[in-house]
Design a protein around this nucleic acid. Structure first.
Lengths: 197, 197
DNA sequence: TGCGTTTATTCAACAAATTGACTAGAGGCG
DNA sequence: CGCCTCTAGTCAATTTGTTGAATAAACGCA
């Protein structure tokens, strides 16, 4: 039941529909807690049933109706209680790419390099979006000014973590790519299964 | 069925029991793919059933017997096939801490700061272990020498990603802690639920 | 004029992960 | 002597997460 905390965190920014949350969690919470649409719709219904959020149906003329959810007082209280409770277990990262890199020596190095390249492209795109979001938050102010004036700083802090993460992805990708390239040159690109015992 | 790939990656380092894997995945794969003991035992049995791994029972006199698993030829082939297949979806990170930071403005800032502090301690400990593992792999050689001589470079590359990640955790933690401290001083430490509309 | 895409949500089935308890001998601490 | 922890695993129940498809109206473009 940790998804609901992420949903509540997203709703602090204001009303959102299941659909809004599904594609990007307003692009800020999705950074550290992604979920599929189905997961979100299910959780939203449960949360509504428990009185943590309320729905406001917006009838749209040229679109299907949508239900905009927002936090109730009980929901706000739940957020407070959640923040105060003892820190949960350490992050769960599950990175398929690193599993492949770990196996690179017995597999097709070119394939691993391709996978790293794709990750780097993805990271570059994400970084660009984050930087734009940062400029949007700063509105031309310096960081110090922002921290002095902004009513909320949480979203900025998490954004900065996302930026650092993607920059590291790119930096590491370059390093790994270089090293694997040299390795591919000396071995002929194909790792061996077992070194012919 | 992605856990099995992580298990196979771990078994490239050699035999391991379910128990070995459970506590740390030999401390290298666990870095980017953690799983609970139950998960691992279940998956190991399934994999054995499918012929990807074999078990060797080691009778121990003063300990319960253990079953050491290792990759079969079919398992090796599966690793190769996995590495070659099109890259899976982007990383799934799920970080409770960042959810809390996102909520910091409406919750107890002191609690968030405590959570960040705990994460930083954890990251520091992990970093120290990683650095020791790195020294162990390098065996006094330079990185260039290592890459030229080592039979496997995958584990080193993933280790470097882990090191970068933990360093970023610490660096960001210091930043966030500073900013939240100032905020706590000006607001009195407690965020407001709603600004009395 | 019709085909694909976007918005918006729901249903059903399945696979995977988490939690908690349980077995069992050994070693160590006070 | 009794208690706790460590090694090494198993079982069952429940909660989460994933996949695939269905519905439905409107937009755009060729």
């Amino acid at each position: 039941m940790a998804l609901r905390n992420a949903v509540m965190a997203a709703l602090l920014d204001g009303e959102a529909s299941g659909y809004d949350l599904a594609k990007g969690f307003d692009a800020s919470v999705a950074n550290f807690w992604m979920a599929t649409p189905q997961q979100l719709y299910r959780e939203l219904e449960r949360m509504e049933g428990e009185g943590l959020i309320t729905a406001r149906v917006v009838e749209q003329e040229r679109r299907p109706n949508k239900r905009l959810f927002s936090l109730t007082k009980a929901g706000m209280e739940a957020v407070r209680a959640y923040v105060a409770e003892p820190p949960g277990r350490p992050t769960t990262i599950r990175d398929e790419l690193l599993v492949k890199v770990q196996c690179a020596d017995v597999g097709d190095i070119a394939a691993v390099r391709a996978a790293i390249g794709e990750r780097m492209e993805w990271a570059t795109a994400k970084l660009a979006r984050y930087e734009r979001l940062r400029e949007h938050l700063l509105k031309g102010r310096t960081e110090d000014e922002y921290f002095a004036e902004a009513e909320r700083i949480g979203p900025y802090l998490t954004l900065m973590r996302g930026i650092a993460f993607e920059r590291e992805n790119i930096r590491w990708g370059e390093f790994a790519l270089r090293r694997l390239e040299r390795r591919a040159m000396t071995t002929g690109g194909q790792g061996r299964a077992t070194p012919e015992t």
